[in-house]
Design a protein around this nucleic acid. Structure first.
Length: 554
RNA sequence: GCCCUCGUAGCUCAGUGGACAGAGCAGCGGACUUCUAAUCCGCGGGUCGCAGGUUCGAAUCCUGCCGAGGGCGCCA
């Protein structure tokens, strides 16, 4: 991308200036270019002179001038100017900018793809909510972040798999099964109370009714007997069916659903890992429980692996799960998207990977802060255990899948977010996502109109794109690769919806100022149609990376 | 008590070592005989939580304090 090419120009200017004796020899830091806020400061700006002025013992302006003198020429570079207190500002050549409209239109769907990932195998695991209830709003945020990162990594040449880890073992599942059995008995008129700590939500009763309707009383035991374990399993299946459907409704599809139970199978990862940890001396027994002696390898505390009742903890199975990813299944990277309530889990899981020599550097965790759902001023409780709850499906139904995803992606993962349903609903027509989608629909409309007028971009002369609005738009298009690189590097998908809005704005301004279909000016029309095609491609790609639709009309 | 994250315009949020701090929404005022007005143009709005420090330069880094959320050996 052009930023990298310009950066290497500056780096070469530096070494050339040193060779010529205009600058003293020293080990220079890597050249980083930024976009100045003000257009008069150019398209790219090098602050290298300011950063090295104390090393070189020259004034930054003098360093910048030396760099300017040795800067190699480049077809995309119009000029370089020295600006106080010591910036070297680079200006794109308008002719080159215009030519990029043709290049982008030609690249089409391949624009802003890269092979930098070099086929490295990355597994992105996200949502992975307990199958003991419907997905809530917080899960939706994880889904939007995880699936978008997966899309972006794929575009950057990584070999990506998306996985949902099913917590179908352990305490919560057992409680769910007991609750379900109580509800199931109630459908047959028995006075079966919901167990203490059980799930009070109405949805469990709905599952119970469905099972009764479809399978009758086959799971009914004699009064007072233990529930049939198959009932709980059936309930989990039905919950997973619902979860899968809710996720598909916002464009999320997994390559793999991984069951926690299979981890614990005879000879499975759980037993392998526990044996290895014992062998390596990382396990101690105390107070009837089995512990990971993590305090001996730099953690604050030891952590329980097997509870005194013999049941493995979530932590223990999660170690096995990640060992399975990184060692057995040989993923180069395991990228986990977790809610901030799992924050304390990160460092001890990495410690466990270290203890097992299981490439802890391959484990990345993106933590997203929790979502507060609001209706106006009223905070809506999200707890799965509260009786009343607003599910992800409810939100999607109210706001729509595209707007839901866009809203979830907008704030950075590290910032807690308020999701005001009333606001999202009331302003649905002024939603930023519609602003972006409308740009795409408008382009389609113009392309249709051009077709009717017998005009196309074939044989267009891109150099006619000299209008300010045209130049600004192409410059905006050229940013997508930089945005993607940032998203990949920082694992921060929120840059995409912000870019999408900037891009849409540049288009809407162009639309207002520049007439495209004009039979009096067929040459200019052709050039502008080319620009439209390039813009359409980039808009569609940006939306596609967020799994948001790019409509042809609105 | 300790640890993590956050605190930027009335609201929701970008910006995390550069040049005069930005967007959307909300408010006010304009623009449709012209490819979709779900649009565009203009105006007002900020002690960047507070106080120190580092730096040529701090919303950004460091320290302390205040506030919000989350976490802290047998929930997941």
């Amino acid at each position: 991308m052009i930023r990298d090419e310009f950066a290497s120009l500056v780096a070469r200017a530096l070494t050339d200036a040193q060779a010529a004796g205009d600058l003293p020899a020293f080990a220079a830091p890597e050249v980083e270019l930024q976009h100045p806020q003000r257009p008069e400061h150019g398209d790219y700006s090098a602050n290298l002179p300011l950063r090295i002025q104390s090393l070189v013992r020259m004034r930054a302006v003098e360093i910048a001038t030396a760099l300017q003198r040795h800067l190699p020429s480049h077809e995309a570079l119009a000029e370089a100017r020295v600006a106080p207190p010591g910036f070297l500002n680079l200006y794109l050549a308008p002719g080159w900018v215009a030519s990029q409209a043709a290049a982008i239109a030609r690249d089409g769907e391949r624009f802003a793809t890269s092979d930098r990932g070099a086929g490295a195998r990355v597994q992105v695991e996200y949502v992975s909510a307990n199958p003991t209830g419907p997905l809530h709003v917080g899960n939706g945020r994880g889904a939007a972040i995880g699936s978008t990162l997966a899309n972006v990594l794929r575009a950057w040449g990584y070999n990506v798999e998306e996985e949902y880890y099913i917590n179908d073992a352990g305490t919560q599942v057992a409680i769910f099964a007991r609750t379900l059995y109580a509800r199931y008995q109630q459908t047959f008129g028995r006075d079966a109370p919901i167990p203490e700590n059980g799930y009070p939500g109405e949805y469990v009763a709905q599952v119970a009714r469905r099972i009764r309707d479809e399978e009758g009383d086959r799971y009914l035991q004699a009064e007072g007997d233990e529930p049939d374990p198959r009932l709980g399993e059936r309930g989990i299946e039905l919950m997973l069916e619902e979860i899968r459907r809710d996720l598909e409704a916002i464009g999320v599809r997994y390559s793999n659903w991984y069951s926690e139970r299979t981890l614990q199978a005879e000879g499975g990862p759980y037993h392998t890992v526990l044996a290895q940890m014992r062998e390596r001396g990382h396990v101690v027994e105390r107070e009837g429980a089995v512990w990971f002696a993590s305090s001996e390898i730099g953690e604050e505390k030891d952590n329980v692996l097997i509870r005194s009742d013999g049941v493995p903890t979530y932590f223990a199975t999660d170690i096995a799960y990640h060992f399975d990813k990184l060692v057995t299944r040989r993923f180069d990277r395991s990228l986990d998207i977790w809610g901030a309530d799992h924050q304390g889990h990160v460092s001890r899981l990495k410690a466990a990977m270290r203890a097992l020599d299981a490439s802890p550097d391959g484990l990345d965790v993106v933590l997203y802060q929790l979502v507060t759902l609001k209706r106006g001023d009223r905070v809506v409780p999200l707890s799965k255990r509260a009786g009343e709850l607003v599910t992800l499906a409810d939100v999607v139904e109210e706001v729509g899948a595209d707007a839901t995803r866009f809203f979830f992606l907008l704030p950075s993962a590290g910032a807690a977010m308020d999701f005001d349903l009333d606001l999202a609903k009331r302003r649905s027509e002024e939603n930023p996502v519609y602003y972006v989608q409308y740009a795409h629909a408008r382009i389609r409309g113009i392309l249709d109109r051009a077709g009717e007028a017998g005009l196309s971009a074939a044989g267009a002369d891109a150099t006619l794109l000299t209008h300010d609005a045209e130049q600004t738009l192409v410059r905006r298009l050229l940013l997508l690769p930089e945005v993607i690189e940032t998203v990949v590097g920082e694992l921060a998908p929120h840059h995409l919806p912000h870019y999408a809005q900037d891009l849409a704005q540049a288009f809407h301004v162009f639309y207002t100022q520049c007439r495209v279909v004009d039979e009096q000016e067929p040459e200019l029309s052709r050039a502008r149609l080319l620009l439209l095609e390039a813009t359409r491609v980039v808009l569609a790609r940006t939306l596609g990376l967020m799994s948001i639709s790019a409509p042809d009309r609105m």
